[in-house]
């Protein structure tokens, strides 16, 4: 073997819309990695592919629905979760996953996110957190660290960000984990755990956004951010939710706490049916 063998198909091509490749995400962006973990998770889930449904909102991560060869819905900005809830409640046997970004799920979609977590609805959420609104060119968002530069924060973001695991733990999600796109094996395993966990599961995935966030916060490219992940990520002990430790500012050389934070069994949301217990 002296040269890589040129191939036409990737082993996961049946699960993605190969006829739409290459996708639109920038070189070094991490969304494709997380999507690959999701595709692999679907294959390993033991559920037939036709029972998996993916719903995305608007933004770079919102394009995942369009690239998955599933029943997929690309909805309006921030409204993926209630839309997904509608599918789940109308057809409970489906495994409904919402795959979207920090801007979509936490900024405009924040109200639906915390209520869905409070109700503990049986929808799986994969939230790409690249610390900015990437699709529209790099504005700051609700997870952008204070002081970071963005196109709408040329003097540095003067707002304090959300800390997603902490927020979702308070809201009530049954399963909360944070991984990065470098931890692809753990992410896929976490997605599988989410599939088998009844109730609201939330997986935050840190992903490089070289164009939107990295460039203006001196992280030159995806490679450099993945290196940051390798150097700084520290596995959290489950259930250990010290808020300060959970904060992330990629510009500081400070540990990034990852892993599974919450895995509990609050009763999942079921609409009341007469004649049922």
């Amino acid at each position: 073997m002296t040269e890589p063998i040129l191939a036409e198909h990737h082993p996961l091509d049946d699960l993605i819309r190969a006829d739409r490749m290459p996708h639109i995400w920038c070189p070094g962006c991490g969304i494709g990695i997380a999507m690959r973990c999701y595709a692999q998770g679907i294959l390993d889930s033991g559920l037939p592919v036709k029972d998996h449904v993916v719903v995305s909102g608007i933004g770079c991560s919102g394009r995942v629905a369009g690239y998955m060869n599933l029943d997929s819905y690309h909805t309006t900005h921030g409204r993926a979760i209630p839309f997904a809830m509608g599918i789940k409640l109308a057809k409970p046997e489906l495994m409904v996953t919402v795959f979207s970004g920090d801007g979509d799920l936490v900024a405009i979609g924040g109200n639906h996110l915390i209520h869905a977590a409070r109700r503990n609805i049986d929808v799986k959420v994969i939230c790409i957190n690249n610390f900015n609104f990437g699709m529209t060119g790099g504005q700051f968002g609700p997870t952008t660290p204070r002081g970071a530069i963005a196109t709408t924060a040329p003097y540095g973001n003067f707002e304090l960000p959300f800390n997603l695991p902490y927020l979702l733990a308070a809201a009530g999600a049954n399963y909360i984990a944070r991984w990065t796109t470098l931890h692809a094996r753990q992410l896929k395993k976490s997605i599988l755990e989410a599939f088998s966990k009844p109730g609201f599961t939330f997986i935050e995935v840190l992903a490089p956004c070289p164009i939107g966030f990295g460039k203006s916060n001196n992280i030159n490219d995806g490679l450099e951010e993945m290196e940051l992940y390798r150097d700084r990520c520290v596995m959290a002990r489950q259930g250990e939710m010290n808020p300060e430790e959970l904060e992330i500012d990629l510009r500081e050389d400070k540990p990034i706490l990852i892993g599974k934070f919450i895995d509990r069994d609050r009763p999942p949301f079921h609409p009341f049916m007469k004649g049922q217990s």
Binding site: V55, Y73, T75, T76, G78, R79, I81, P82, F83, A84, M85, G86, I87, K88, L89, A90, K91, L94, N111, H112, H115, P271
Partner: peptide
Amino acid sequence: VQMEDELASMAIILGASAA
């Protein structure tokens, strides 16, 4: 289902219809 606002109400019935 009683939703958290009308945005969610409209979104959820579209989801149910899609199913």
